[in-house]
Design a protein around this nucleic acid. Structure first.
Lengths: 237, 237
DNA sequence: TCGGTGGTAGAACGGTGTTCGTAGACATCC
DNA sequence: GGATGTCTACGAACACCGTTCTACCACCGA
């Protein structure tokens, strides 16, 4: 870099690096993602992000109004990254594309620890998100869904996926705190938990209680969940 | 109270009230509800709850392990308060009861500011919640839903309602921050926001964008949302 | 009447988001 | 080339937060 007038192999006293590598919103969001992945959403603080960048906390506020806006930026990046499927008027093909789209959203939320919890409650009405929103509406419209349903469909989809992944990660967090031997016996202790109930008091729970909690075949549950939604959507065609 | 051995009309020096009104989990949860309603979830702190009770912060910790447990207690009270409908095998009647149940859950969440946000992500598997859970399963079973669907149905229902009410209240919060004149023009500015878009770039958004955002007829949106869900459920009968 | 017990309280610790004034690097103009 | 002004990183500080520790003190049973 030619920022310094002194010769490059002579560093000015008291200054290790040329420094003043300019910050940017992008760099800040990058760092926030790193912190989020490594430490989880509870540890995602302005100080942690600043430390990740090797920068003072107060410097962040030149580029980002506050923590809420930083979180909105994090959400925005993942929202824009999602590949909205191409429109189609064939219901079967439409449902197939919707399914794989929902899977891909779930997967990106899964990849980044706690991104789901951070994303929940964000609205896609800010200007930067409009092109993506346009594509989403185009897709929902293409199969011939009535307009009032389209508005509900998008919300429904995102709240379901975010809620699902959040819950999944809460569960994983809880598992992470267990000892290895405890972890192995989870299925067993779940069975006991419901098995010990008095069948007279809890006829239904003793019956199907365990299936409520078994998160082993997680993907099955997700698939069943989105199938309920898709059937609901398709009933309006 | 007969806690003092001294005569009741003689108060010991330096002590205005008999004091030492014993704390309890119930009293703490009461106070937490008051704070939540009055100040919102961001202001719900251990210190605020303690102040509401006129008590030291540290005193709370003899009755409640930490803030997470306090929140779980708050959620538990609202969970137990919900009146689960009676089972029925008539699909039409079943759907009707499910609808009114979901309405009532939404209403209690609405009543207490930010209760929805606080409730999200709680699991009904703690022992105190089991009787209620038993009733819920009994209801879902009664119409003949397949077992794998039942597990998904409960989750689906609660994440939808919680997500819906949270979003609604975020919107209201935003409105609360506006000046009265701004508030009057919200519908207008929404129309402008989407109307100013180039129809060539955003054919779908200019068409139905406004219907996405109009929260005036909120209840309609909620009803459409739960109808999608119920149709999805019923498709498995 | 005397201990022991258990709930209360105050102070403190380490963390948080945010604000403010300062100081320095850069680009621009004279 | 030198002065000017703008932009931005920075350190310190403020007002909070959840939680812990220790001392105190009212009550209970002996």
């Amino acid at each position: 870099m030619s920022k310094q007038s002194s010769l490059p192999w002579i560093t000015p006293a008291g200054r290790e690096t040329p420094a003043r590598e300019r910050l940017s919103v992008d760099a800040i969001v990058d760092a926030a993602y790193v912190v989020l992945n490594r430490e989880g959403h509870e540890k995602l603080s302005m100080r942690a992000v600043a430390a990740e960048l090797g920068v003072a906390v107060s410097s962040l506020y030149t580029h980002v109004a506050n923590k809420d806006e930083l979180i909105r930026q994090i959400w925005l990046r993942s929202f824009l990254a999602s590949e909205v499927p191409e429109p189609t008027s064939d219901p079967e093909e439409w449902a197939r594309r919707l399914r794989t789209w929902m899977h891909s959203i779930r997967d990106t939320l899964r990849e980044h620890r706690d991104l789901a919890r951070v994303s929940a409650g964000q609205h896609p009405f800010i200007p930067e998100a409009l092109p993506q929103l346009e594509r989403i509406i185009a897709f929902f419209r293409s199969v011939g869904l009535p307009e009032p349903i389209i508005a509900a469909a998008g919300d429904h989809m995102s709240t379901f996926i975010e809620g699902y992944v959040s819950e999944e990660q809460v569960w994983e967090e809880r598992m992470r705190r267990l000892t290895p031997t405890e972890r192995e016996n989870v299925a067993e202790s779940v069975a006991h938990y419901f098995g010990d109930l008095d069948p007279d008091d809890y006829p239904n729970l003793t019956d199907i209680g365990p299936t409520l909690m078994v998160h082993a075949e997680k993907d099955e549950r997700f698939d069943r969940g989105i199938e309920i939604l898709i059937r609901g959507f398709m009933s309006y065609l």
